[in-house]
Design a protein around this nucleic acid. Structure first.
Length: 569
DNA sequence: GAGTTTGAAACT
DNA sequence: CAGTTTCAAACTC
């Protein structure tokens, strides 16, 4: 890798615009910076994806596993924009520099690298579609490569390439606030251009500095795009959330301190060169409507509405935190909600997506369905409550109830109608769906008793025939499977077959093979003997004799254990 | 409907 | 990681 000093000293040619324009001819540095902000794509076009995401069952990104809106790489090119050289010098005496300051990204050694590497001048690196036109200042790659690049440009890479020793020779103060460059014969400071970072690595640098400096200060280059909105700092709000639909599309990603008055926002925009007439009246209207709107906090009244709308009532979270039921559920707030200053709307999709992404970075399972079924190790992504209606269904985190005894909806387990598990940290658990201390066997037995009752009822109803007990039997096996973390196939056309992905098609079609996999194990690993023993014990105790006869599937399964469980080998 | 309680989420 | 604060839902009156 070439020395960055060499790059600087060599002072490679800047962009054409840099060459042509004198410093005085340039636009406002900040306005140019804002123009360089990552373009916010029209949100409505992608709005449907957000809700659609709820029902997806395939995952395309590790970092966006559940109920997360797509990061639509096809529509959202990754722009790695950098402050222009005159903006770099914004805090210096003359604000203009002739030198170029180039950061190379070794992961990005394309034929364009020399020319379009991450350069602190007017150049920008855009990962877009393939183009042969190298003169447009854009390095473009295919969609597939785009995603790879997005993942490659990680914080690790940033640290490696930006904070390398070589680079740090030219960088005085590290990454946290300002970078000092030794360019030419002048030292200069610059506010780090946060948007050089890929979307999923904001935590590298606190953007709060930039924003704080931005508004109404001399460091007017620091209004930041929405996608670096620091989730952990409540001092910022997306401007879009304040000015709503009236924000110009070019700027609607800008964030401002949340305690900033609307008039100040307008003033700020004046300062940084954005025409603000478009905001004036709108801001006024916004304030008036805010005052006049009476907060409605009635909760949902009908079950149908429960499905259609979460009816959140968020006041302070702007529906951008997991406090918000809608946001947490991966849906936009709707008219039926009574939230205030809501940003969880299609209009602000980019903000929503980015915030969600940040949350997922912190907790990849944040948007996972709260209830999981250990029997197949899969979250209830389908939303099929029946799939979770098993003794083993449990809350992914577990609750921490102390006073409610897990008997009220304060308890997430109870609210989800699942029993507490050992993963819960609740006290005095009395969850009617299953107490924390209740052993798995006890739950199986409870379910088994219920099944027995069903069997008896069925037997009475059908008198002497076993026709009709298929489901209860199946239910028992399902319960056995659930409570032993097994995935069991009892019949090739049973519902369970859909979940039994580890069973070969050939074996599945036999219909009599008994496939037994521990979900926690690799597909080829057999069940642990204890699990089998548990099943055996339960069966020996509780199975009706007629179900143990040769006509039932148990005795027709392939040999693989004392029970004849097929262990997959 | 207002006020209180509760526990998750967020923050320090 | 533990303690504290914030938040919004659940609950009570």
């Amino acid at each position: 890798m070439e020395s960055y000093r060499n790059d600087i000293e060599a002072s490679p040619t800047t962009s054409p615009s840099e060459q042509v324009l004198t410093p005085c001819e340039k636009k406002s540095p900040v306005s140019e910076f804002l123009n360089d902000l990552s373009p916010i794509m029209p949100s409505r076009a992608r709005a449907s994806l957000y809700k659609q995401r709820l029902y997806e069952t395939s995952f395309t990104s590790n970092s966006s596993l559940f109920n997360s809106p797509h990061l639509n790489i096809h529509q959202r090119p990754i722009n790695l924009n950098f402050l222009q050289s005159d903006e770099i010098g914004a805090s210096s005496s003359n604000g203009c520099y002739q030198d170029d300051f180039m950061i190379k990204h070794s992961e990005y050694h394309t034929q364009h690298d020399e020319q379009y590497g991450a350069c602190f001048n007017a150049s920008e690196v855009t990962i877009g579609k393939t183009s042969d036109n190298a003169n447009d200042g854009v390095v473009e790659i295919s969609d597939d490569e785009r995603l790879d690049k997005m993942l490659d440009i990680s914080s690790k890479n940033i640290r490696e390439h930006v904070a390398s020793d070589e680079f740090m020779e030219h960088v005085g103060q590290g990454l946290d606030s300002k970078l000092t460059f030794l360019g030419g014969n002048q030292a200069m400071s610059m506010q780090l251009p946060y948007n050089i970072l890929p979307l999923n690595h904001y935590p590298l640098i606190s953007p709060i500095v930039g924003v704080a400096d931005c508004v109404g200060s001399d460091h007017h280059g620091a209004c930041v795009p929405s996608h670096i909105l620091p989730l952990s700092h409540d001092t910022l709000i997306p401007l879009a959330g304040r000015v709503g639909d009236h924000v110009d599309s070019d700027h609607h990603g800008v964030c401002v301190p949340k305690n900033m008055e609307d008039s100040q926002i307008v003033s700020c925009f004046h300062q940084i060169g954005i025409p603000c007439q478009q905001f004036g009246d709108k801001v006024d209207q916004l304030s008036k409507s805010k005052d006049s709107s009476k907060r409605k906090r009635d909760r949902k009244t009908s079950p149908d509405e429960t499905e259609a709308c979460k009816h959140c009532n968020c006041r302070r979270s702007r529906c951008l935190k997991l406090y918000c039921e809608c946001f947490a559920a991966g849906i936009y707030c709707e008219d039926c909600c009574a939230c205030e200053n809501c940003v969880n709307k299609p209009d602000y999709e980019d903000i929503v997506l980015d915030i969600r992404h940040q949350i997922e970075l912190r907790n990849p399972l944040a948007f996972a369905p709260p209830i999981v079924n250990p029997s197949n190790d899969s979250p209830n992504v389908t939303g099929d409550e029946n799939l979770m209606n098993t003794p083993s269904a449990r809350h992914k985190r577990g609750c921490k109830c102390k006073r409610s005894k897990c008997l009220k909806k304060y308890c997430e387990c109870y609210r989800a109608k699942v029993g507490c598990s050992d993963g819960c940290h609740c006290e005095n658990c009395d969850n009617s769906f299953g107490k924390k201390s209740e052993s798995m066997i006890q739950r199986v037995e409870k379910q088994q008793n219920q099944s027995h009752e069903m069997l008896n009822t069925t037997q009475v109803m059908s008198d002497s025939t076993l026709v009709g007990i298929t489901n209860p039997v199946s239910s028992i096996w399902e319960n056995l499977a659930d409570n032993n973390h097994l995935t069991i196939s009892t019949h090739p056309y049973s519902r369970d077959m859909r979940d039994c992905q580890n069973v070969s098609q050939v074996e599945s079609e036999k219909g009599t093979s008994f496939h037994c996999y521990s979900s926690a194990l690799s597909p080829k690993q057999p069940c642990q003997s204890k699990e089998i023993d548990d099943i055996y014990e339960i069966m020996a105790d509780g199975f009706p004799d007629y179900l143990m006869e040769t006509s039932n599937p148990i005795n027709t399964v392939n040999s693989g254990s004392s029970l004849g469980l097929y262990n997959g080998e």
